[in-house]
Structures are given as C-alpha cells and as structure tokens.
C-alpha cells in the first residue's frame, strides 16, 4: 500500500468516524485511534497525535455554530477550561512516560464507559435549585433558548464539576480524545446544568483542551503531517455531513449500533493491551 492509497483509506475511515461521531454525539475522535492502531497497525502515539488534531477541527467547527445559537455558556466553559487544560498537559506528559500497552488498556476502559454513559436514561430533575455561592460569584447562572422562550437555570457543585473536569482533561491529553462523555457527566450530573447546555459547552471546551495537549504532542514529534492530514480532513468532512442531516435523522438505532461498535473496540483494545500486542 503506497502513501496515496494509505491516505485515501485513512481519509475514508475519518469520514466514517466523523459522520457517526457527530450523528450519535459521541465524537469522531473516539473511534479514530482504535481504527488506526488496531486495523492499520499505526503506532498508538502517532494515532493519538492525529486524533487530537482532528478533534480540534471538529469541535471548533461545531462550537462556531453552537455559540451563535445561544446554548453555550462560555463563562462556565472558560472557568472549567482551567481544569481541563492543566489536566490535558498532565495527560500529554503522562503519555510519554507510560507504555503504549497501558494506554491501550486505559483507552479500552474509557470506550466501555462512554458507550454506557451515552445510553443511560437521563432522569428529569427538579427545577430551580437553591443558588450556589460559588456559581453566583462566577456568574454561571444563565438561561438558554427553548420553544417556550428563554429558560433560566442554576449551577451547583462547582468544585465537584471542576475536579471531574481535571480527569476529563487528563484523559484527553493521554488518549487524544475529546472526553465529551466525562465532560457531560461533570456538567449534566454533578453541576446540574441542562443537558443541551452541557453538551454544547463541552464541545466549546474540547478545542482548547485538545490544543493544550496538541502543543506538547507536536513538540515531542508525535504529530506526523502525512498521517494527520487525511485524518483531519476526513473527520472534518464526515462530521460536517453528519451535522447537516442530524436534524432529520432517527439516531436512536444508530446510537445503539455505534455503541456496540465502541464496546467491541474497547474490549479489543483491552485485550491487545493486556497481551502486549500494542
């Protein structure tokens, strides 16, 4: 397989990953690393470098749209980025210290968790919790557009969400993923932020988080231009197509199928990591 054929294959894989990732909300980065490492035999560090690049592109592109729609709470985003960027640096430095096998195992576990998290039911919560002093000081309480007009919300447990965001950042830097599943867990479950605000703010934060670790990866020589090029262009194209048809697509079955794929990839990565094949 020469460079032209290889690039084409990686590009097609990127389109598929970006397409499914944006349709299901799980993100394209989460399958790019297993695709490159398990199927194409790419060293996992190169795969992670290329994946980081692609998630900066897709999250920035998506955030550009969301931020204008008024769902994104950029104060919450900015504040929590302290935790995710510091975590991302820690993860990126950690990536050089631990063995590729260990990275594969951790990656597998995160995949299993993401599949679970995206399929669990989201219980309704009581409206209008008591004002939280930290959230009030940081001007986090806000409102978001609904069909019935602006709906206000309050934010709680900022320290809890902040700590979890550090974990999300570390995983992002270590694995080259957006760790949207952990970010949404922190905002939606711990800080009690409405789901739509949580997901769009998570997307908004992913670009900066990934940029923090991408800088470290670049300087380490983990970002190969010839590999990153088709990955970035493919995932970007795929996620743009996915976002176009998202509004009228029935995503429930697709989400289940994609979750099963992620479960299989997670198990495969854990197996390969434990047996030392990666």
């Amino acid at each position: 397989m020469n460079s032209l054929e290889f690039s084409l294959l990686v590009w097609l894989g990127g389109v598929a990953a970006g397409f499914l990732g944006s349709l299901t909300g799980l993100g394209g980065g989460i399958v790019i690393v297993p695709f490159l490492a398990l199927w194409l035999g790419v060293d996992i560090r190169y795969a992670i470098g290329a994946s980081l690049i692609s998630i900066i592109a897709t999250s920035s592109g998506a955030a550009a749209v969301y931020v204008k729609e008024g769902y994104t709470n950029f104060r919450i985003g900015m504040f929590l980025e302290i935790a995710t960027t510091v975590g991302a640096m820690a993860g990126a430095f950690l990536a050089a210290e631990v063995s590729p096998s260990a990275i594969a195992v951790v990656f597998g576990v995160v995949l299993l968790y993401s599949a679970y998290q995206s399929n669990r039911p989201r219980p309704e919560r009581p409206e209008n919790a008591a004002p939280d002093p930290v959230a009030t000081f940081l001007k986090m309480d806000s409102s978001y557009p609904t069909v019935h007009g602006p709906q206000s919300y309050r934010v709680s447990n900022v320290p809890g969400g902040f700590s979890l965001m550090f974990v999300a950042g570390t995983l992002s830097g270590l694995l080259g993923i957006g760790s949207g599943a952990v970010k949404v867990l922190a905002m939606d479950q711990v800080m009690r932020i409405p789901f739509k605000v949580s997901t769009t703010t998570s997307t908004f934060m992913i670009g900066v988080t990934a940029a923090a670790s991408a800088g470290v990866y670049l300087s380490r020589g983990y970002i190969d231009p010839v590999l990153a090029m088709p990955v970035m262009l493919g995932v970007l194209a795929g996620s743009m197509i996915g976002a176009r048809i998202l509004a009228r697509a029935e995503t429930r079955i697709l989400r289940i199928v994609f979750s099963l794929v992620i479960l299989a990839l997670g198990a495969d990565l854990i197996y390969n990591g434990l047996t030392g094949r990666i």
């Binding site: 397989m1 020469n2 460079s3 032209l4 690039s7 035999g41 790419v42 060293d43 190169y46 010839v226």
Partner: peptide
C-alpha cells in the same frame, strides 16, 4: 511522494 511506502508501525518521531 504518493508512490512511496509509508510505515507507521515503528515509532520514530518527527
């Protein structure tokens, strides 16, 4: 360079 053979199995760094 389209006809060269790429190899990403071995990590060499940029």
């Amino acid at each position: 360079c389209g006809s060269t053979i790429p190899d990403y199995r071995v990590f060499r760094g940029e």
